[in-house]
Simulated scan of single mutants.
Amino acid sequence: MKTFNSSNFKLGILGGGQLGKMLLQPAMNYGVDVSILDPDPASPCSYFCKNFHLGSFNDYNTVYNFGRNLDLITIEIENVNVEALKRLESEGVTVYPQPHIIELIQDKGLQKDFYKNNGIPTSPYAKIQNREELKLYAEKFPAMQKLRKAGYDGRGVFKVKSVDDLPKSFNDPSILEDLVDFDKELAVLVARNASGEIRAFDVVEMEFDPQANLVDILFTPAKIETEIEKRAKEIAIDVVEKLKIVGLLAVELFLTKSGELLVNELAPRPHNSGHHTIEACITSQYEQHLRAILNLPLGSTELLQPAVMVNLLGEKNFVGEAKYIGVNEITRLDGVYLHLYGKKITKPMRKMGHVTIIDHNLDNAFEKAKFVKDTFKIQA
């Protein structure tokens, strides 16, 4: 591996969305030469990266040709061509997170098998091939059906309430999970570098938009017992140690009404649940990911102030060039930080940005968050 010790070091990122855009900032601080591959000529990174390459990160030849003259490749989206990354790795290009880990996380069935085989708590599940097989599990309904591949941002998830829902269910390889009677949805971000150093951020609590199945707001400190916080971090670190991943891993968990913690899903990259770290922590999740993949010492994850993050989604019934309503009103508030992703076109429920609110008092941060939600709108 060529180590990061000069301005000649070349980093490639597969994916040019908002996560890549926010990863560019710490890369600029370190003077790293960054190239980005994305299929959308209007993706957020296209306006900020001089080495922006238009092309599919799913295509073998495109990914291979993009990466063969780079020193290190990372991702901001899991849906990439793993076989091309494996070839690049075999030819001496460093790929973090490692291709075999991306491959595992791309498939929710393999994810669940990993949990089961490694003693990581998760909900009971069955792997099914199609709708006909799903019928055999009618006694488990209501249950959650999740596509094994290509599901993200609430897509690829279907609640099978009864046999009457079967015609609307997925007819592709999927998993069927027992319905979890959960009290809270939590997430822990953990980083590991190639030297084996590990650091975890504080637990965040997430509240989801029931229609879009997307995170509406999240906050930290989470409203949980100290013992639950400790246990959630231990589980997340255990996952990272058993994967031996290099980079950042988001571990999403259910806290059941009986007090049990169950791992739901993993994301091997910067994650929506860590946006607040830019202002609220000594080290942001983006710098931490960069430090990890460059095998630098990991930064402090200390929380400087309580924080609330609000996702900014495109308004219903508006499609077209984005117009922002309420910018002056919300930025007038102390501790409110606006992040717009630079997406030119808005549509209903599209992630267009986020706002982080930090305050010495979490209740005060929530009041400001409510004002932001009521005031700031993205229309067309």
Rank of each mutant, 00 (worst) to 15 (best):
Y60E: 11
P39V: 09
F52R: 07
I293Y: 07
Y30E: 08
L253R: 08
I175H: 08
G326C: 01
P121E: 05
F201A: 13
L298Q: 08
Q285I: 09
K377V: 05
I105F: 06
F318Q: 12
V263P: 04
D216V: 12
E229P: 02
S56E: 11
T3R: 09
R192V: 10
E132D: 14
R131D: 11
G17E: 03
M22K: 00
D374K: 15
I224M: 09
K373T: 07
S258I: 08
V160E: 04
L313T: 06
T375L: 05
Y152Q: 15
V93S: 00
E367P: 07
L253K: 09
L166M: 06
A150P: 06
A232Y: 12
G15W: 09
E329W: 08
E91L: 06
Q305W: 14
E83P: 07
L24I: 13
E103H: 14
L296I: 02
S300C: 09
Y337M: 12
R192W: 08
V204W: 03
V160Y: 04
G67V: 02
K316M: 06
F4T: 03
V355L: 09
I278P: 00
G247E: 03
Y125N: 01
I278S: 01
M22S: 03
L186Q: 01
E260H: 14
I36K: 01
L19D: 02
Y47P: 06
I235C: 05
L214P: 12
D363R: 14
G92I: 13
V327Q: 05
K149G: 10
S195W: 09
G299W: 03
N361E: 14
E279P: 00
L11R: 02
S300K: 13
I228A: 04
K373G: 04
L266W: 01
G335D: 10
R131Y: 11
N193M: 08
G353T: 11
S7C: 06
E91K: 05
L338R: 06
E103P: 08
P297D: 10
L243D: 05
P26I: 03
Q285E: 12
D209Q: 11
F114H: 13
T220F: 08
E177M: 10
V246Y: 00
Q129F: 11
E279C: 00
Y47S: 15
K242Q: 03
L176C: 07
